[in-house]
């Protein structure tokens, strides 16, 4: 008996994997296709490596320069981690205040929009004057770039609440804290997660840009140096690492989202999509 359920589970798992593979096949083929064309053109037309290195050469360069890449990657990760942490810690409370108070909304919003309109990349050199070459200007830049998308989504999430839910809560208890914690915040989570995803991508951009303008370590700094040395191979290697890093961040966010809000529409699986009968089940009565 137990054996059959185990087999059944394995069969389902394989079925799901096959489904996932089939589903992602067009994407995999198109990406692989571009890489193959790139590789072939570099070889056929004999393009100089300092102009455009082939994909295989770029990947090889990651291995060759791994020590340099690794230590600089750690610096960049550190900056992103701190900057993004500050973003999360500041934007959720501010979004909460805005959602509760018209006055906050009226005073803070124009200010936030104004800050958002400043071309941050253009003021980055100013940060070097103010804060020097240390980690501080990087954190600030990461924060400035990633703050706004999260704030906007969090405010939208916190404000999109059925007003009747508030009435319902009032018939049970007057505690605003309980209402926020048990109803308002969970209700906003899908929006907040979509904000977090946009925000983490912007954080990566912020860190690299800040390193461009004045740093003695970090992937942005290494990228600039590779450029100066006309070491195009290393430059491409760093680009690949940056892309992978961005992808990993995005996947981590997606993973957390799946764990935290499995109930949301975007996370529900249904019959047609994964080929199993397991999840979408609608009873009648």
């Amino acid at each position: 008996m137990q054996n059959t359920t185990y087999k059944e589970a394995r069969r389902l798992r394989i079925k799901r994997m096959v489904f996932w593979f089939k589903n992602s096949l067009p994407g995999i083929i198109s990406v692989l296709g571009v890489i193959v064309i790139w590789e072939l053109s570099v070889r056929i037309f004999d393009i100089k490596e300092y102009i455009l290195p082939s994909p295989s050469a770029s990947v090889m360069a990651i291995i060759t320069y791994w020590n340099a890449i690794r230590s600089n990657l750690l610096t960049t990760l550190y900056e992103i981690g701190l900057g993004f942490g500050v973003t999360v810690l500041i934007s959720i409370p501010i979004a909460t205040m805005i959602s509760y108070s018209k006055i906050f909304q009226k005073t803070l919003y124009p200010f936030m929009v104004f800050v958002q309109l400043i071309p941050k990349v253009a003021i980055a050199p100013l940060f070097v004057i103010w804060f020097g070459f240390g980690v501080m200007p990087k954190i600030l830049m990461v924060f400035l770039l990633s703050f706004f998308p999260l704030l906007m989504d969090a405010v939208a999430g916190l404000q999109s609440l059925n007003p009747r839910l508030y009435s319902m809560a009032r018939t049970m208890n007057d505690s605003e804290w309980k209402f926020y914690w048990k109803i308002k915040l969970p209700n906003a989570l899908p929006h907040i997660f979509s904000g977090l995803k946009t925000s983490i991508s912007m954080a990566t951009v912020g860190a690299v840009v800040a390193e461009f303008l004045g740093a003695d370590s970090g992937l942005g700094y290494l990228l600039l140096r590779a450029n100066g040395d006309i070491n195009t191979k290393l430059l491409f290697a760093i680009l690949v690492v940056l892309c992978l890093m961005g992808m990993v961040f995005f996947m981590i966010m997606g993973f957390i989202e799946k764990k935290v809000i499995p109930w949301h529409v975007s996370q529900r699986k249904n019959l047609k999509d994964d080929g199993t009968k397991k999840s979408d089940f609608r009873a009648t009565a």
Partner: peptide, 10 residues
């Protein structure tokens, strides 16, 4: 209430 107002995460 007319709309059931159940919390979809619960």
């Amino acid at each position: 209430f007319q709309d059931h107002l159940l919390l979809e995460w619960r």
